[in-house]
Amino acid sequence: MNIAVVDGQGGGIGRAIVDRVKKAFPDINVIALGTNSVATGQMLRAGADDGATGENAIIHNMQHVDIVIGVIGILNANSMMGELSPAMASAIGGSHTYKILLPINRCHIHVVSVEELSVSEHVDNAVKALGSYLKSL
């Protein structure tokens, strides 16, 4: 089982996701995919098993992972202040992998009918969703 965590900018949300996923599921292979080297480095320091940076790395790895976790903005071209390219968004959105998306209302996306929670609570919910999905396999 390979899980990709996609993040950009400072990598803080990706770091939190990797940390909690590895604590909850230590045997699962987590790949840190950063839109920049800072984000990738943060996720690697949090315990990701492997990491890669940039457009080609994200596009390539969407063919090789089972699950993708990140903020909802990873489906939106030019999100993260332009760091997430249209090709990255297309590769992630067009991938047949199972997607667990945190409803963070940034990147010109406002998700309605979702509880206003802290980033930490959204990460906890993402890890719970991952556990439910893994049990269903």
Results as ranks from 00 to 15, higher is better:
127 V>S: 02
56 N>A: 10
27 D>Y: 12
77 A>N: 01
16 A>K: 10
120 S>R: 13
46 A>I: 08
10 G>P: 02
118 S>V: 04
134 L>R: 02
89 A>H: 07
44 L>S: 07
21 V>A: 11
27 D>T: 15
130 L>K: 06
46 A>P: 02
125 N>T: 01
57 A>D: 04
84 L>P: 06
65 V>P: 09
32 A>W: 03
36 N>C: 06
24 A>N: 10
103 P>W: 03
111 V>K: 03
76 N>P: 00
135 K>C: 06
37 S>C: 04
38 V>T: 14
72 I>D: 06
40 T>F: 03
83 E>W: 04
54 G>F: 08
89 A>C: 08
64 H>I: 02
18 V>C: 13
137 L>V: 14
33 L>N: 08
88 M>I: 15
90 S>L: 15
39 A>V: 11
26 P>D: 12
42 Q>T: 02
77 A>T: 01
74 I>D: 01
125 N>E: 03
132 S>H: 13
41 G>R: 06
110 H>G: 05
41 G>M: 09
109 I>N: 06
49 D>A: 12
48 A>M: 03
34 G>M: 04
46 A>T: 05
77 A>W: 03
44 L>T: 09
136 S>C: 06
98 Y>D: 01
71 V>E: 10
86 P>V: 09
8 G>E: 10
102 L>S: 03
42 Q>F: 11
12 G>E: 06
69 I>F: 07
72 I>A: 15
57 A>N: 02
135 K>L: 14
31 I>N: 01
80 M>C: 02
5 V>D: 07
5 V>T: 11
52 A>C: 02
20 R>F: 09
21 V>Y: 07
110 H>N: 14
121 E>N: 13
25 F>D: 07
6 V>F: 10
42 Q>H: 09
53 T>W: 00
45 R>G: 06
42 Q>A: 15
108 H>F: 07
